[in-house]
């Protein structure tokens, strides 16, 4: 089938992208004036210890040998070891990545459920009250700096109102009395799987502020994108024809017009999903969210290059796959699009 041919071709290209990214991060890691061997040994090392660490880490070999070793390990699924904590990075990622994914996915869900309906209605009733207010939300969403908004929300919902927790994934009392059993690493899923309803409610409450902070940009973008494409689509003759056929306004807006208007919005949403993976860094620090952002922030502060490289690769993989997924989705939604 054509579609499979296309997917295979795109995957081959993805390999090329991943190889380039790995080469670039690898070279940057070696060029930067920091000695991984010294970091490996810890504070106050002796020259002998450093020399030994250099041998253990293979840093005495030529650069291309080091790279090939690195790639060979990658192919075995070994992302290396943190030079700071001496922990296997893969194991760390298994705990941090789901936390971030949960945050980002929840944020995306907010962007879809808030952004798309607001965009549709504001495009349908142009210059109405809803349109003006949702455009204000959109502008605010795309232009407000994340860290500032996050702090503001904490001040309001934790400080003044006391409705929502300040940060973290669950309350300390939950970790003590109703600990979340790690299965997938997604607390919302794990608590449901184990029937731990107290923890489910608590994790939901903890998700709201950081996810919303992370999603404001995507919400704003989604509203604006959906609105402008809706305005265009609603001018089309097939919409007049649908009205002439007596179809109700709800069907016209949310089915007949939206399926046409949603394609550019999905592209934007997909890209902001990847953007959120890195955007999560700030949000996680503000909300002490034990995710990829917190993890990579510590790695950057400690010049822990194996970790930085691993996270970069993971984000690249997401980027490549989301893009492929978006192209396939577009072809599925619009029969006129051919994959080629």
């Amino acid at each position: 089938m054509r579609r499979w041919e296309y997917v295979i071709r795109r995957l081959a290209l993805a390999v090329l992208v991943l190889v380039s990214v790995s080469v670039i991060t690898f070279l940057i890691a070696r060029v930067v004036p920091s000695d991984p061997a010294a970091a490996w040994v810890g504070p106050r090392p002796t020259p002998e210890q450093i020399a030994q660490a250099r041998r253990e880490l293979g840093l005495d070999k030529p650069l291309y040998v080091q790279y090939l070793r690195y790639v060979r390990a990658l192919l075995r699924g070994d992302l290396g070891v943190s030079v700071k904590t001496h922990q296997p990075i893969l194991r760390d990622l298994k705990t941090y990545l789901p936390a971030t994914m949960e945050l980002v996915l929840f944020g995306m869900l907010m962007a879809i459920t808030i952004g798309i309906p607001l965009g549709v209605l504001s495009g349908a009733k142009r210059n109405g009250l809803l349109d003006h207010s949702s455009r204000l939300v959109a502008i605010a969403g795309v232009s407000m700096p994340t860290f500032w908004l996050g702090l503001l929300l904490q001040l309001l919902f934790f400080g003044k109102l006391g409705w929502l927790p300040l940060g973290g994934r669950v309350d300390r009392s939950i970790s003590l009395y109703n600990p979340v059993q790690q299965i997938t690493g997604f607390y919302l899923v794990d608590t449901v799987l184990t029937g731990n309803w107290v923890a489910l409610k608590d994790s939901l409450v903890h998700l709201i502020l950081p996810a919303f902070t992370l999603a404001t940009y995507a919400i704003g973008l989604t509203i604006r994108m959906t609105r402008s494409t809706m305005i265009e689509v609603l001018e089309e003759k097939y919409i007049v024809a649908a009205r002439a056929a007596g179809l109700p306004e709800r069907t016209i807006l949310f089915r007949l017009a939206l399926k046409n208007a949603i394609i550019p919005t999905l592209t934007v949403l997909g890209l902001s999903f990847v953007y959120s993976l890195t955007g999560a860094i700030l949000v996680e620090v503000i909300f002490s969210w034990p995710g990829l952002g917190t993890y990579v922030t510590n790695a950057i502060l400690n010049v822990d290059f194996p970790v930085i490289m691993a996270v970069t690769l993971v984000v690249t993989v997401f980027y490549v796959f989301i893009n492929l997924f978006l192209d396939l989705l577009q072809a599925a939604l619009d029969p006129r699009v051919t994959l080629g």
Binding site: E236, K237, Y238, R243, A244, P248, L256, N260
Partner: peptide
């Protein structure tokens, strides 16, 4: 009016390519 449109009075337009919704069969 919505119950009259399509049910009792129907309309066809000039440009059929543009009056059919491109993303539905």
């Amino acid at each position: 009016m919505q119950r009259i449109r399509g049910r009792r009075i129907a309309m066809v337009f000039q440009d059929p390519a543009a009056t059919l919704n491109p993303v539905f069969s």
